[in-house]
Structures are given as structure tokens and as C-alpha cells.
Design a binder for these strands. Structure first.
Lengths: 342, 342
DNA sequence: CTGTTAGCGCATTCAA
DNA sequence: TTGAATGCGCTAACAG
């Protein structure tokens, strides 16, 4: 027995009268071990309650069967769905995921990446916290498998799984604009989004803009906000816009958080008679969608599919069965029309 | 250079003209290395871009600085917040977390626990998927540090961090009952919860029940549901109850999911004039709380604090600075009164 | 203060 | 088909 009190292959070898090499072969289903020796070994394995020390194996094989996951915020709907789906896709292959939060700090992001490299993870899935990806690039183990999810980072040669943000925003905006045109004489639409440094914020803005042009609507500076993609940003943006007497009735919200914040504002600060005509088009789908009462059109991202694809790309890289050039996948979004019942 | 193309302490040792032991001492801030040797070594460390191979260190020290986290569902609000707070509390100590989903299956739970043990994690934080904890107990490395969160498991000798479910449910129910008594002649209250096998479901039921007795209200079988703690269960329970002509106006919802489901039902299936008088008391707090329009009282769990405490208990066990007996901490909940604005 | 030595537990040559 | 020997990269006595 080792100091840990656990049986090692040496104990098993001794007990079954074979060498450690043979035990190792049995453990790895090597196939070259005679059936009865294998049986004897397996019996002892069982009897001694043997558990493999995977750390030792990893040192030998320099493969940890672990992938790192870095995200700006672990406590987001998007990330957790992603984690669940990564776990689902990876665990059948014997991979575990070690998750870390970069807390939207580039410095922390680099630290975490470095630590993952030191832990010899076989690959990394990252939601970059900045548009540059500099910290990730610097800390990355040379050429180590890396898959970006949700956002692109400029300086990073890596596979990526994204969604068609521009197209999704375009479709939702077009749909809402059409409704407005049918109902109202002079349709207008505000925009609530985040910093254009972020690829997702930028792409959604561009989609909205194109749809505005194609619908013959004018982009009004006072009603175009890039305050951020958080709940409070949505709340504040909506407050700022709705405080003006000439506020539009329609808005595009760039993600679930701003959507929630905006709805919270209207519901809790504006009298019902005033908000009655408000209509939203928004990115993301959530469990509480039925409560987002101003939502007319929503764009949902296939988060689970994104996790699956990210896992597949990573496994392909790890096994070496991937083309040299990074592959960027852009998954389609789905437009949903919401009927208001209350 | 090693085969991985990374410098090892041997490369650094050679380059700086010292032994590997000295390099190791420098790396571990051992303090017994003379300032100028240390400087020379650090220079080479930097020049060669040395990165520690933590797998090798772990094999030697049999400490991985990794803790495993097992939860029935990674994609839940509760778990996300917990993961974030565990990461926050643990990462300053150099610990990483490897998360896995048991998908509410006892078999998977055991498998995951076993794999974590084989990976030599220094400890495990688990949200048990069953009341027995049998799978966890079986796969657990003998005496390995384990902290249960949220729920207890009968057969498991482990530290635990829970909340005062009974007390929280009691307080919310009492508050709502008092409001009812003040307003109405014959107050009644329904209950929507989950299977009593789950400790949290049972404790919340017991708290509700005690408050009902103390308020002089009768528990009515037809309006007491244990269908489950999921969104759909809440929806279905509410549908079943509200379909009866004699349905009460007040309800206790045992968690965020049932609360959401119940609200979804009322909002989307029941005409406003009929649901106008409905009032809820419920467990959990969410970002979309402002949209839960029937909520009068909510009980919030200190999820972040739970993560912190779990981390602290785990670290104490790992360092051996913990009493032999398991310590069960029960954190207090907070009652919030909600004002309805719409 | 520093170097030598000896493994941690496993997988993998190379012989037999 | 099996065993003996070697080393993955690091830390930890023990000497010097």
C-alpha cells in the first residue's frame, strides 16, 4: 500500500504474482494479456479496491483528460448552459472540465490561462473578456488547443463557435419594424446595447442598423445607447430614454440582461397607461420569457449546440484530427414571435 | 528541454549552474537560498519562459490544489452563484474547481465522485442528488474532505452548509397569513412544493405547516401539492388548483422554479380579473423578481455566503485544522416584503 | 546555503 | 505473452 492508503499497481502486481507492466496492460485493455492472467489481475484489482492514480498517469502520458473553461462570469445563464453542455459532450470521452472566472479582468484572465497551462489541461474553452485576447494569447501554451465561444478575439489564432449575431438582430428588428409600419404612421425604434469593443455588441448593433435602414427608419442618436450589457445598464438606458417626452415606443435590446433591466424599469417606474404601447425586440431566451411583457420578438441562441460544437472542435484538435487552419463556426439563431396575453 | 518543448527545472538548473533542488527552492520561496543565487535562477526562469508542471508536483506531494464540485444540474441559478462564489473564495488559495453534473442520477453521481477521487482532488463540494448519499459514500476516498451544500444526505459523514429552510418558510408564511387575516374574513393558503424525500422540500413544507397551524389556517389536501420543484411542476400545480372553483387566493411556492411556473400559469392562462387578488409567498430570490407580480413575501438564501462557508470548511479539513466531528452550518434566510406596483 | 539521492505511480520500451 | 528497467518533472530528506 502507498502512503495514501490506496493500493497501487505494485500492490496489485505483487498480490497477483505478475509485474506492474502486466497490471498496467490489463488496466488499459491492452489486449496482449492472456485471459487467465488478466482474470487473476482483475480479481486482485477488485479485492484490493484499486483506484488508478490519474495524476501519475498524466505525468507519464502528459495528457490530463481535462479541459479548462474560462468565462468572464460563471454566474450567467449563458455560461452555465454552456458548462452543462460541455460536460455532457466531454464526459463520455473521459474528460472533466475545470472552470474559472476571469471576472471581466484581462489580468485575471491571463493568470487563469497560465494556471490551466501549468495544470497541463489538454485544451481550453474560453469566452474572451476583451476584444484583443492579448492575455489569453500570452499565457497560452504554444499551439495548445483553444476554442473561443460566443465572442471573437482579434489576436488569437483559435477555433471559434459563434452565432449569427448580425443576422439575428437584423431579423428581429425587421419583424418589429414591419409590425410598427402596419400599425403606426411614423414608426421609430430605439436601441439598447453594449460597448462596440465587444464583438457581440457590435455585431448586434450592426444587424439592428441594417434593418433600420432596410425598413426606412432613422437611427436617432438620443435613442441609441451603448451603456453596457448588464441589467442595470438596461434599466438606466431605458430610464434615460423614457424620460424624454419624444421617446419611441419600440426598442431593440441587445441581450437578456438589458431586456430584463428595461422591463424592470417600465414595470416598476412607469405608469401602466404610459408603457402600454411599448414593444421590444430582443436577443436571448430565458426561462422567464413569459414575464417579459413588452417582448414581441426574441432571438434565441443555440447555447447547448454551441457547447457541443466547441467540445467537438476541441476533441478534434486534441486528437490531432483537425485541419491546421482555425475553423470558425457561426450557428444560426431562431426568431420567436411572442403573443401578449396580459 | 522536455519533449513538451517546455523548460523544466533541470533546464533551468543547468542554465543557471545550480542543482534542481535549488531551483525548486526558489520556486517555492523556500527562503534558504542566497539572494544572488536566487536572482540568477529567477533570471533563467524568466529567460527560458519556465512554467511549472503541476502534475509532477502533485504526484510528488499528493496534493492537487483542486476541488471537485458535483451538482445535479449545472444550469441552475443556485449552482451558478455557488460556483462563482466557490471560485472566488478558493482561487486566492491557489485552488481550482472541477465541476461535474450528476444529472440527478445516483449512478452518475457515483461515477463522478469516483473519477474525482482518481484525480486526487483535495476535496469535494457536493449537492447530493438523493437523500441517502449512498453513491457518494461508496465512491468517496476514505475520509476525504467533503462538504455538502444545500441538502443533507443521510448516510454521509460530512460537513454541510445549509439554510434554515423551515424557519424561512415559516416566516414568509406567517407574514402572508397576517396580511390575509387583516384583509379577508376567511383566509386560506395553498402550498406548492416537491417530493418530501428531498430535505429542502420537506423542511420548507414543515415550516409552512407550522406557520399555518400558528396562524389558525387549515391545511387543505386539494391545495397542497408535492409535484416537484421545477418550472413545469409549478405551472401544473397551479393549473390543477386554479381549475377548482374554490381555489384559494394565497399560495406558498417552495422555490424559484415553482414560483416562476406558477406565475407563468396565471399570467398566460388566467384572465387578469380572476388573478387580480392572488398573493404569493415564496422561497428564493432572482434577478427577475420585479416581474413576479403576485409575490408579496420572498425568502432569500445567502448563496454566496454558502459558497464561502463551504470553501472555508473544505480548506479547514484539507489543512487538517478541523475538529473530527462534522460541522453542520445552517445559515439564516432573509424575508423580503414586495410592493406591487402594477 | 547547496548538491546528491531517491522516489511519487504509472506507461513503455526492449528483451526474453 | 510477460518482466525488468527506465523516466515523466518535481520535492524532500540528508549530507556536506
Amino acid at each position: 500500500m502507498s502512503s495514501r492508503g490506496e493500493a497501487t499497481i505494485r500492490d496489485v502486481a505483487k498480490a497477483s504474482g505478475v509485474s506492474t507492466a502486466t497490471v498496467s496492460r490489463v488496466l488499459n485493455d491492452d489486449g496482449t494479456v492472456s485471459p487467465d492472467t488478466a482474470l487473476r489481475v482483475r480479481l486482485e484489482l477488485e479485492r484490493l479496491g484499486y483506484r488508478m492514480n490519474r495524476v501519475a498517469r498524466s505525468l507519464k502520458t502528459s495528457a490530463t483528460h481535462t479541459v479548462g473553461v474560462i468565462a468572464p462570469d460563471l454566474a450567467s445563464d449563458f455560461f452555465m448552459l454552456l458548462a452543462e453542455s460541455l460536460d455532457l459532450a466531454l464526459s463520455p470521452h473521459g474528460y472533466g472540465i475545470i472552470v474559472c472566472s476571469s471576472r471581466d479582468s484581462e489580468e485575471l484572465e491571463g493568470e487563469r490561462m497560465r494556471l490551466l497551462a501549468e495544470r497541463l489541461v489538454d485544451g481550453v474553452v474560453a469566452i474572451p473578456s476583451t476584444g484583443s485576447g492579448a492575455a489569453l494569447a500570452a499565457a497560452r501554451r504554444d499551439g495548445a488547443p483553444l476554442v473561443l465561444v460566443d465572442r471573437l478575439a482579434a489576436g488569437l489564432e483559435a477555433d471559434a463557435v459563434l452565432v449569427d449575431n448580425e443576422g439575428g438582430a437584423y431579423a428581429a428588428t425587421m419583424a418589429l419594424a414591419a409590425d410598427l409600419a402596419a400599425a403606426d404612421g411614423r414608426p421609430r425604434m430605439g436601441f439598447v446595447g453594449g460597448s462596440l469593443d465587444l464583438s457581440i455588441a457590435r455585431e448586434r448593433y450592426e444587424g439592428w442598423r441594417r434593418a433600420m435602414r432596410d425598413s426606412g427608419l432613422a437611427e436617432e442618436r438620443e435613442f441609441t445607447s451603448f451603456r453596457g450589457l448588464r441589467v442595470e445598464s438596461g434599466y438606466e438606458s431605458m430610464r434615460a430614454m423614457r424620460s424624454r417626452p419624444d421617446a419611441p415606443e419600440a426598442y431593440f435590446l441587445a441581450n437578456a440582461y438589458t431586456h430584463l433591466g428595461a422591463t424592470n424599469y417600465l414595470v416598476s417606474e412607469e405608469p401602466a397607461w404610459r408603457s402600454a404601447g411599448v414593444a421590444f425586440a430582443a436577443f436571448d431566451e430565458t426561462p422567464y420569457a413569459p414575464l417579459l411583457r413588452f417582448c414581441r420578438y426574441s432571438v434565441s441562441q443555440p447555447v447547448a449546440a454551441m457547447g457541443e460544437r466547441a467540445a467537438a472542435l476541441l476533441l478534434a484538435r486534441i486528437s490531432g484530427a483537425a485541419p491546421a487552419a482555425p475553423s470558425i463556426e457561426r450557428l444560426p439563431t431562431t426568431l420567436t414571435k411572442h403573443v401578449v396575453r396580459y
